[in-house]
Amino acid sequence: MIPTNSPSRLILASSSAYRRELLARLRLPFAVMLPELDERPLPAEAPQATALRLARAKAEAVAARAPGSVVIGSDQVATLDGEQIGKPGSHAAALAQLQRMRGRRVVFHTALCVVDAAGGAELENVQTFVTFRDLPDAELDAYLRIEQPYDCAGSAKNEGLGIAILERIDSSDPTALTGLPLIALTGMLRRAGFHFFSN
């Protein structure tokens, strides 16, 4: 049996429906609060540094508004040839992303931060290496029209039909690519006093 109680209020600092769905798998009660901050990278900032900074900033912004809570912040940055690839926002931009990435390996940096008033902030970064299939424009265009992943960095939902345009995924944490590394998170929550199973 998985208990529904927790030692303190758990909050997800995110507007992402994907992260909410992933966190719900842990069967812990949680609230959602939007961090409301500028998520643009700083000039000359390394992709991993961007993801870590934003994950921490999201968690700390919400923690400041909810004293005594344990707050989860996460951010993801995709890179190709060292250049950051953001959320496309439109069909044309998504198609251009997929055209550039086809047949190539893209690195996704998924950063995680848990802020606990008692223990401070704990940070972790998970790298996922994704190889895209070398597909023709017509297939890429058809995929985008079906799934419309315009709010996803890299323009592909691996948890949906996007898996068909991927050739390989290498990661130590299988949910990191979707936006919330649950293996890392469960360890962090255990250290914050949460329990997933009863005796």
Rank of each mutant, 00 (worst) to 15 (best):
L54M: 13
P67W: 07
L37N: 10
V106L: 14
A142C: 11
L166W: 12
A184W: 05
S6V: 03
R168T: 13
I146D: 02
M1E: 06
S74L: 15
T175G: 04
A118K: 14
A46R: 07
L189I: 08
M188A: 13
A111Q: 02
L28A: 05
A17T: 07
L182R: 13
I165L: 09
I11C: 04
A44N: 15
V115R: 15
Q99H: 11
V106G: 14
M33Q: 08
R168P: 05
I2K: 15
P181I: 12
T79A: 15
L23K: 04
L182Y: 04
K87Q: 00
F194M: 03
V70I: 06
A17E: 15
A49P: 06
R19G: 07
E124K: 15
L182H: 12
Y150C: 00
E159G: 12
R9Y: 09
D134W: 01
S171F: 02
A117Q: 04
A24I: 09
L10R: 01
F196A: 12
P43W: 15
R25F: 01
T131L: 09
L189K: 02
I169S: 11
L161S: 10
A24G: 08
L177W: 05
E122C: 10
S69D: 06
A66L: 08
Q99E: 01
P3L: 13
I85S: 04
R25Y: 07
R9I: 06
Y18M: 06
S90C: 07
E159H: 11
I165E: 00
D170N: 03
L166Q: 04
H91Q: 13
A176N: 02
Q48P: 03
P3F: 07
V32K: 13
A121D: 00
V32R: 05
T4C: 08
E39R: 15
E139C: 12
A24W: 06
L98Q: 02
T50M: 13
A24Y: 12
Q148C: 05
M188P: 01
R133W: 01
S6F: 01
I85M: 00
L161F: 15
A92H: 12
Q97D: 10
